[in-house]
Design a protein around this nucleic acid. Structure first.
Lengths: 173, 173
DNA sequence: GGTCGATATAAATAATTATGCAAATAATCC
DNA sequence: GGATTATTTGCATAATTATTTATATCGACC
């Protein structure tokens, strides 16, 4: 089954969660505006800002944020945020589909649906979609790992997600 | 004292230098085609290829190559070459990129982008677009000389052009 | 309230990576 | 050639970073 995993759930979490989220935010800001070469260096700045954590937590935070340590030309190092760390516009409740075997992701843009698959799977799955959803779907076009799905007029994103769940969701895990 | 630091001097150097150059080359290739999570891991592969060095040298090599260690989504790490990090000239007209070798034209229709390429190039370039623009682009579908690019909702034509310029325009560095 | 399950954190430690130093090797200049 | 100056490398170790383990904290549910 695919579940809603949009970002909103984060808003509802408890204090601890909030502290962590806040800390991650602060870390991001610091890394954006400073050249940080080691975790201890970052640790000191965090402490100045009333974020009291240990290096262990910091290591986990950086892992979570996918912060990379990269050498600079001047012989030192710098922790850099991934470029795609801009907030991704999560279009709808489709992220959980990632857990599916060959289907990696479902996204929406306007009236169109884009299904990402493992390489080579797109045609096969597109064929399945065509056959199993001939009410909701007018047609599909498949590349190697991408399917463009054109829904019938009046079909909503939720309709599509529901259809996909019915036909492609695995029972568990 | 000043030393020759242009590229030509590399051609003229001795065996040891050649070994180092060769090793850096081999390291780059390995990192391009494998997911390497630690220097020891890389070390073993290098040894298999008759490159006998120690971790110390490897650390220095990676620093030289500006290879970053970055966390992956699956909880492991990966050493990545800095191919992306180079700053690119950004013109906002599609002219710059059209002049590029294999990409012939970029056009828009509604929310869709159609990229025309030399015959046979579409799949290859589509693959590049997928990999280099996963923020702006939901997916691509390639024929023989045409690529359909589906941008993420909220992405403008200018965004797309800029992205294409950054990633595919020839640089005059 | 009490219990369960999940998440977050610190302390200690393991694992990994960077570097000072010395020896070896190569280039440069008589 | 030999003397001199850079460069590369390994060894040992320092420095840094990741993870294991144990607790603590919070929310959900009864």
């Amino acid at each position: 089954m695919f579940y809603a995993l949009n970002n909103n759930y984060l808003e509802l979490k408890n204090n601890k969660m909030k502290n962590k989220r806040n800390r991650l935010q602060v870390i991001s800001e610091i890394l954006r505006s400073n050249v940080i070469g080691s975790q201890d260096e970052l640790l000191k700045i965090l402490n100045e800002r009333q974020c009291d954590v240990t290096q262990a937590t910091l290591s986990r935070d950086l892992k979570l944020l996918k912060v990379a340590k990269t050498p600079l030309s001047n012989g030192t190092y710098k922790y850099v945020l991934p470029s795609y760390n801009k907030p991704m516009p999560t279009t709808s409740s489709s992220n959980a589909i990632v857990s599916m075997g060959a289907i990696l992701n479902i996204d929406f843009s306007g009236q169109l649906v884009v299904v990402k698959t493992k390489p080579g799977y797109a045609s096969a799955i597109a064929w399945d979609i065509d056959n199993k959803a001939n009410y909701e779907v007018l047609g599909t076009i498949a590349g190697d790992d991408t399917i463009l799905v054109i829904p019938r007029e009046g079909i909503t994103r939720e309709d599509i997600l529901q259809m996909m769940n019915q036909n492609f969701a695995e029972s568990q895990n």
